[in-house]
Amino acid sequence: MARRVGWALLAVGVLLGAFVGYELWVTSLVARHGQAGLQAELEERSAAAVPAVVRYEADTGRAVSPLSLPAGLPGPGEIDLAAALASAGLPPASSPPPGVGEGDLVSEEPPPEGGPVGRIVIPAAGVDWTVVEGVSAADLRRGAGHMPATALPGQPGNAVISGHRTTYGAPFHHLDRVAPGDLITVTTVTGTHAYQVVHVMVVRPSEVWVTEQWQGSWLTLTTCHPRFSARQRLVVVARLIGGPNAPALVAGAV
């Protein structure tokens, strides 16, 4: 009897060990493989893309963001953005292409689900990932995913990007290290867009208001919280402060 109990405990231990190994290492290998494919697809898409130029008309039907900006946070006009991005190790924000007026936007068609959206870099959180279109389980195995039906990065509205915290390469493992004022860049086929973090908060998974489309241009990052638990969501909200569409959009985001 004792021998059988011993074997059963041993089997449970092996299964639990295999579970930990699968979640931490096997899923990371899957994500690494997915990222390699996405990067190659993004290069192809960027080379083939012909961004369109459209006249920006502020959507006043949208709600204003309910989040108030933290006191003391420097505004977009008060930052030497080029120097701040360079000192953070981030790529420079793109300028509007020639022929694009101050009230114009460089826009793009969203990629199909599973296609590459762009590259997100957050030095404060050690993030440098290619973002996939879609937030299904299959999409998020390849990296952080852009929520369809939300704005694309650099475009008017609220671009929502979700990512794993502990499995599948854990793209947002250190998202809790981000603080208001930190800089983020997202490079899409329309150029490199720079964001400034304005809020870090913890919400319930059902709080869909964080994904609503607001006036101006925002980036919302979501991941599981606390680590090794799917009970809550850590949410980082950032506002657009630089990039090809900033001249038209920044005024609405402030």
């Binding site: 699968y22 979640e23 389980a137 499995t167 090794f228």
Partner: peptide
């Protein structure tokens, strides 16, 4: 079956992908 079980357990309790809604 074991991998499916691991996948379900991971998504349900450990890390659902951080999505909202």
């Amino acid at each position: 079956l074991l991998l499916l079980g691991y996948e379900w357990l991971g998504r349900a309790f450990l890390d659902s992908g951080g999505t909202i809604g």
